[in-house]
Write a protein that binds this DNA or RNA. Structure first.
Lengths: 293, 293
DNA sequence: CCACCTCCATCAGAGTCTCTTATCCGCCAT
DNA sequence: ATGGCGGATAAGAGACTCTGATGGAGGTGG
């Protein structure tokens, strides 16, 4: 199971095509064909259905491992690279949208005020991408947000040795269109809304499956799926009545066209966590220290 | 980063020797030397210190990834192999010592009574080994025990797609030597014992770092370390006053020479969980269904 | 102090592997 | 039919990865 073979396997299934995968990877189509054949011979099972190109059952199982393996290989490389390649003058942050709030911004300001010349690079990404960027070494530090019981940690998938640290906790709110009957409430019970229509915006609002897990229910039916990191776009959808979403209260209150109502029960908070590799770069370590204070 | 190279890298550091690693892997010493050289050229850093053989800082970082990577490669292979290689007449269980209690034994009896001819193979292993055996496909099903808040799941490291299921919850107890002053108590507070001397027996009793995490303290100093899966050996050590240990109450009460006192505060339980791959073998699925009822 | 032993590094060469190019084959739409 | 698309296959050049032989550094015992 050569990583090269796994990489082309993933590329083939991502692109649903041998030739497009070959182009993406800089191989010839022939090489890709041979890679898949070699992998199939290795595991002793057909992995890719041809025409149309798609995973066989065995291929689907392998797809549950291959991306994680490749990511961890990157993580290992990045871990080692950090030991030498000191570029202490640049700090790359990866943030999920609702994580980039006043706490993080202020800490970053403190860091830039205190430290010597520092070139900061902030990127807003989906939650999963924040982790892959940090673990893969393309970002020095990540901020991920989510929902949890007060002072409980967020469930962060284990992609390698990382350190997480609470950065901020804010009340959790449900956003309603302005004028919605429930928008006048002082607070709402999340479980009362389990059968309402929700917008599933896993990159911006709290993902619905997370709400289900925290509330131990299988409600929260998604009415509309929104991919991307655009909070204003999400607000527009919510304002137009496409469904509800869960956001941190301060942020949600500032978005146009919607009314944010705090969640009363269950007792939950919107939480932002800092995540960095076990051996962070120097500026990342400093920022983490500022947040940790 | 060829898996072969990673494998010999791990073997070299495990054996602290190129030649012994070569013998263990069935290579010549020359090949091992070339593997390490290739890996070092690949990552661009020296990984292994020679004479004596040991990890460099970069090598130490890689050692945090390499075993996990190799395990996950095995897991991928095993996942695919399970799709075809039906051997539905044999069930291999891996259990951590305190997990193999009446609940598990009874469920197993029910399964053997109900099912057609079934060849059962039970192995007692340390907690970590149970997971590697299950994930690597060498066991169909594992039972792991640990300590958690009531109805909270155990923290199981993420080595791939697995399913976990609560199998049993029992009161947690601290074991004292017979006649110990505290042995007459009806219950003890764990935090009162944070400064007592403890036996660290990670494979049998609840690991001390787990107690620290659950109690949010850094107490529980280990006075003696005991590796292995021998509960009677642990009891003998505890009876001789080498230190305290945490075990499930029913089991601890049955061990000779020691007195088990239930833990009153914090509210904790000894929990046993079943863990199996996301696509289990047929007998494993049946046993899981029996436990789940 | 030297002979010797252990252990890792290096070299050379045989066999294997892994690419590319070129071609083939099945399927589909025109 | 026919051309186009997309994957499979064949052949060959070059790179790779073993083994066996040899070299060299460091420790040890006589």
């Amino acid at each position: 199971m050569d990583p090269h073979l796994l990489r082309t396997f993933v590329a083939v299934l991502d692109h649903c095509s041998f030739s497009r995968a070959a182009a993406a990877l800089g191989y010839t189509q022939s090489a890709v064909s041979q890679h898949i054949a070699a992998l199939e011979a290795d595991v002793g099972a057909r992995l890719v259905e041809r025409r149309p190109v798609g995973p066989t059952p065995a291929g689907a199982r392998l797809m549950e491992h291959a991306p994680a393996l490749l990511l961890r290989l990157d993580a290992a490389r990045a871990d080692i690279a950090r030991l030498n390649g000191a570029r202490p003058t640049r700090l790359t942050l990866a943030c999920s949208p609702a994580a980039l709030g006043p706490t993080v911004a202020q800490a970053l300001a403190d860091l830039r005020a205190s430290a010597r010349l520092l070139d900061v690079d902030v990127r807003t990404l989906g939650r999963a991408a924040v982790l892959t960027e940090v673990v893969g070494g393309r970002a020095d530090l990540g901020f991920v947000d989510g929902v949890a019981a007060p002072s409980d940690p967020l469930p962060i998938p284990d992609l390698g040795p990382t350190v997480t640290l609470a950065a901020a906790e804010e009340p959790l709110a449900v956003v309603f269109p302005d004028g919605h009957p429930l928008a006048r409430r002082r607070s709402v019970r999340l479980t009362d809304l389990a059968q309402a229509q929700w917008i599933d915006a896993p990159d911006t609002a709290v993902p619905l499956d997370r709400l289900r897990a925290v509330c131990r229910t299988d409600g929260f039916p998604p009415r509309l799926r929104h991919h991307g990191t655009d909070l204003h776009g999400l607000a527009a959808l919510a304002a137009a009545g496409h469904g509800l979403a869960a956001l941190p209260l301060p942020l949600a209150s500032a978005l146009p066209g919607i009314t944010a109502v705090p969640v009363g029960e269950p007792r939950l908070v919107h939480r932002t966590e800092l995540v960095h590799p076990a051996n962070p770069t120097e500026p990342a370590r400093e920022l983490a220290a500022l947040i940790g204070r």
